[in-house]
Amino acid sequence: MTELRVGLAQLSPVLGDVDKNLRLHQEMIEQAQVQQLHLLCFPELSLTGYVLRDLVPDVSIRVVDGQPILVELLEASKNLDLAFGFVEEDARHRYYISSAYCSEGRLLHIHRKVYLPTYGMFEEGRYFAGGDRFRAFDTPFGRLGMLICEDFWHMSAPYALWLDGADLLLLMSASPGRGLSPEVALGSSRSVEIINQTYATFLTTFVLHSNRVGFEDGLNFWGGSTIFGPDGKLIAQAPYFEQTLLTATLDLHALRRVRQQLPLLRDERPGLLSRELDRLSMLDEECS
C-alpha cells in the first residue's frame, strides 16, 4: 500500500463515562468508514476524559480477553485500524495512561505513557504509574510508534521510536490550552506545533498529532490536530476548539524521496550516542 487514508478524531470525551465515550468512538468510526479511511486515531484518554483524579479506578480497563469495551473496538478494527486512549489497570492494580493500536480484529500494541507531568496544573504522577518503554510495532501500513502528550516533550522518545523503525508517529494528547498573546494560536498550541514540525523534519517521518477538544474543570483543550509529512511540511490541520474528523491521504513513497534528499536516518550514529550515554551515566555515578 502506498496511499494511506488517515483520520484524526478530534472529539470531546465525556468525563468519566466510558460507555458514552464508546458510543462517541463508534460514531467517529462510522464516519471514518464512510470516508474509507484505513486508520483512525483518537486522542489521549479518549475513552475516559482527562481530569479524572479519584475516578481513575472507576474508569479503568483490564486488557483481558472478552473485556466488553475492547471487544467492541477490536470488532470495529476489522474494518479499519484504530488507535485510542484509555486507563489501563494491570494485574497488580497499577493504573496507566495507555493507548492501544488495533488492526484486523487484533490488539497489536499498547503504549503506556512514560512521562507523567506532575507540576503546575498537572497531577498525573499522583494517580498513575508510568510506562517503561518506547517500542515501535508493525502494522499493515508499515512500522509505527505511539506517544502520549508529555512523552513527546522529551525528544528522546520519538528518537527512540525512530531508531526502532517507526516511519509514522502517532502522537495522542489532551493538551490544555493556555498562554494568551496577540496571535491566533494559544502559546501551548504554538509550542506543540513547532515541536511536531521539528520532529517531522529531523526524523524525516510522518507525524500525526491527535488532540482533543472540549472543557473540563475550567481547562480548555485546543484541538488543532495536525499531520506533518517527512519533509516537515504541514499536510493537514484541524480547526482549534472544534469537534471534527480530520482526514488526509498520506503518500508513503514520500519517505523514500525525502530520505534521498536528506539521509539523516542513514547517517545517524546510535552506537556513538549509546557510548556517550554510557559515559554520562558513569559520570553520574561517580558524582553521586
Binding site: 494568551l180 498573546s181 496577540p182
Partner: peptide, 22 residues
C-alpha cells in the same frame, strides 16, 4: 506587551467555556 491578547481566540475559549459548563 505580554498582556496584549487576541480577543477572537480569548472570546472563543470563554464563550465555549460558558456554553459547555452550563
Amino acid at each position: 506587551a505580554q498582556l496584549v491578547l487576541n480577543a477572537d481566540v480569548t472570546g472563543q475559549v470563554l464563550v465555549g467555556f460558558l456554553k459547555r459548563e452550563l
